[in-house]
Write a protein that binds this DNA or RNA. Structure first.
Lengths: 215, 215
DNA sequence: AAGGGTATCCCTAATTATGGGGATTGTTTC
DNA sequence: GAAACAATCCCCATAATTAGGGATACCCTT
């Protein structure tokens, strides 16, 4: 017999879900909560095997709650159930440790299937979610491995100065580190700005890090 | 009616698959190939809507073939069908552009379902593959957060200001963007500096990016 | 020998950031 | 209701960066 906890601020959905599980032998609804306040206590009290989690709730949102549950109770599975199907929500939910991701449009019988699936270590997803997950994996996987997207053709000296800049040194300190004058650093910086199409130290640092220009 | 092409060097599997599709109205097996030589010609000749692709084959492997098909014929869907379920194969297949990933243990009826699913833009996966896909996405997404386990506990406003800073804005412009005064921005920055243990904009930007503090 | 690129140095002036003090108004928490 | 925190605003003084304009010297290629 599986213990279920439901976090959802939509009373209608909670009611119909409650009716759905009524009389089921394998599943028991151990707790219904409209928000995630005192999350740890709630989980500790009803000891669920599977948590059904909405994303949009007052106070702490479902993604952060998922992260907390998965961290503090690794054996508890979290099944997201939401109306959102944008890449961002899906990505963050999965990074937070969600074990499955269903859309609210999922028919009741499929929800039951998904709960059983997730309790056995599976990862149920609505079809359009699955497609987006593959898309994300494809893109994030590539993005992480890609060394640098653009070649800004910085010289070795410029890269060196940029590296010192990223590590927080001022012009004056960079000059000392490199054994050159303050004015030379300034000239190099001007050239770096041109090559990176930026106009300030912060932008230069941002471009350098975002394009992985430094080793 | 969907046209199917099958790439698999296992004659037994090809035969039984051929029998499976015999007499089906919606699906037509337009080509069976034991390897990927002259891949482009083969695809051009049988014009499939869906390709069923094994991974282990003599010569070019199924993952490379998948990449080529998805590049040259973006409208053709590729459904991997293999005995391999290791993270590496799954990851590379998806990065190569696979639209779905089934294990060879999948029952025939599910294979048919998956073909129909993938042809309509879905992403069918065997359950254990789905679990691994989530695992992969989670790890690639976390990769950045893993670097520093430190939580700097910035407030929402502080994060917002930091985000503008990273995008290159000066205090004055940030003040305008946020609709607050220059002095308030300064106060926030002072607090950010303390929390990040830095003492300049460049360091703040560097710490923010290196620890992926921003969405 | 001329041109292109790199690295080095200099000036003035304006703009911007930093460090040190303050303060008030809310909200949340105990 | 006091304490803690977040967000807002202010002043003074100093330090640092940026935008213009210059310059010389060296190496390499054509």
């Amino acid at each position: 017999m599986l213990r279920i906890a439901l976090f959802d601020d939509n009373k209608k959905f909670c009611d119909s879900f409650s009716v759905l599980l009524e009389g089921m032998e394998e599943l028991k609804l151990n707790g219904i909560f409209p928000d995630c306040r005192d999350l740890e206590q709630k989980i500790r009290k009803c000891q669920p095997d599977v948590v059904l989690m909405d994303i949009e709730m007052p106070g702490v949102n479902g993604i952060e709650a998922t992260r907390e549950i998965r961290l503090k109770f690794p054996e508890v599975k979290v099944l997201i159930q939401t109306v959102f199907e944008d890449h961002d929500k899906i990505f963050h939910a999965i990074c937070a440790g969600a074990n499955g991701y269903l859309l609210k449009s999922t028919p009741p019988s499929k929800i039951i299937d998904a709960i059983l699936d997730v309790s056995q270590g599976g990862s149920p997803m609505s079809p359009s979610v699955a497609r987006k997950v593959l898309f994300l994996l494809q893109n994030y996987g590539d993005a992480g491995n890609k060394a640098s997207t653009v070649d800004f053709k910085l010289t070795a000296r410029e890269k060196e100065i940029l590296a010192w800049l990223v590590s927080g040194l001022s012009y004056k300190l960079i000059a000392e580190k490199c054994g050159i004058s303050y004015e030379t650093v300034r000239t190099h910086m001007k050239n770096i700005y041109e090559k990176l199409h930026v106009a300030s130290m912060t932008e230069a640092v941002a471009v350098a890090l975002q394009n992985k220009l430094l080793p």
